[in-house]
C-alpha cells in the first residue's frame, strides 16, 4: 500500500465498494498492440453494448499515443547527430593524415604518381577505415543488444515514473529493427566517403616541389 495504490483481498473490496457480485472493469491484455482494432470489433459483436462500454488503450491513454509519435520523430535526431559527428570526425582525421603526409605525397607525386591515383589512395584508405569502424561498432552494439535482450534492462528504480502507464513492465527487453540497423551502417559509410572527398582533392592538387619542402 502506498499513496496511489491499495492492494486488498477481493472480499474486502466488494464490501468496501458495495458492489456485491458485480465487477466494474475487465482489462484485456493482448499479445501485440497491432491487432487492437480487430479484437475491439469482434468484442463489440459478441457483447451487449447497451450496458457496457468498450474502450481501447488509445482512447484511455491518449498521451501514450502522443508519446509514440514523439518517439518516431525523435528517432531521426540521433541519426542527424550521427551524420554530423561522423562527417566531422572523418573530415578531421583524413585532413590530418593528408597534412601530416604532405612531404610524402609530394615525393610520390614527384616520382610520377598521378592526381587520380592520389585521390583513389585516400578514398580507399577512408573506405577501409570506415568499414573497420562499422565492423567494430556493429559487433560491439550487437553483443550489448543480445546481452540486454536476454537479461533485460531493469527500470524498477524508476517505477514511480512508470506507474503513470498502467501495466508497464519494469524490465525492458530491447530489440533492433533491421531497417534502422542498415540505415545506420549506410549513413556512416556514405558520410565517411563523402567527407573524404575534400581532403582527397586537396591532396591531389598539391604541387610536388612545394609539398616536398614541407617538413
Amino acid at each position: 500500500m502506498d499513496s496511489a495504490l491499495v492492494v486488498m483481498s477481493l472480499g474486502d473490496a466488494k464490501i468496501l465498494t458495495g458492489l456485491g457480485e458485480d465487477v466494474t472493469e475487465i482489462t484485456v491484455f493482448l499479445d501485440s498492440s497491432i491487432n487492437t482494432e480487430e479484437v475491439m470489433e469482434s468484442l463489440k459483436k459478441r457483447l451487449d453494448m447497451g450496458k457496457l462500454e468498450l474502450v481501447s488503450w488509445k482512447e484511455l491513454l491518449a498521451f501514450l499515443l502522443d508519446l509514440q509519435t514523439f518517439a518516431e520523430v525523435f528517432k531521426y535526431i540521433p541519426l542527424v547527430i550521427l551524420i554530423v559527428v561522423t562527417s566531422l570526425g572523418i573530415l578531421n582525421t583524413i585532413l590530418m593524415s593528408v597534412t601530416e603526409r604532405t612531404r610524402e605525397l609530394g615525393i610520390m607525386m614527384a616520382l610520377g604518381t598521378g592526381p587520380s591515383r592520389i585521390i583513389s589512395l585516400i578514398m580507399l584508405e577512408t573506405a577501409i577505415m570506415g568499414l573497420t569502424g562499422i565492423i567494430l561498432g556493429v559487433s560491439g552494439g550487437m553483443s550489448l543488444l543480445s546481452y540486454f535482450s536476454k537479461k533485460g534492462i531493469d527500470f524498477s528504480k524508476w517505477s514511480e515514473g512508470l506507474r503513470t502507464i498502467p501495466f508497464h513492465p519494469t524490465t525492458i527487453y530491447p530489440i533492433i529493427e533491421p531497417m534502422s540497423f542498415y540505415l545506420a551502417i549506410g549513413v556512416v559509410f556514405v558520410s565517411a566517403v563523402v567527407s573524404a572527398l575534400y581532403p582527397a582533392y586537396k591532396a591531389a592538387g598539391l604541387r610536388p616541389m612545394e609539398a616536398m619542402r614541407v617538413v
Partner: peptide
Amino acid sequence: PSSELAELRLRRIGFVFQEYNLIPV
C-alpha cells in the same frame, strides 16, 4: 596538365634529389 606531367615523370624521367626524398614509411 599535372596528370600528364606525372605520367611523363613516371615513364621517362628519374630524379635524384638533394635531400634524398625517400618515402619514410
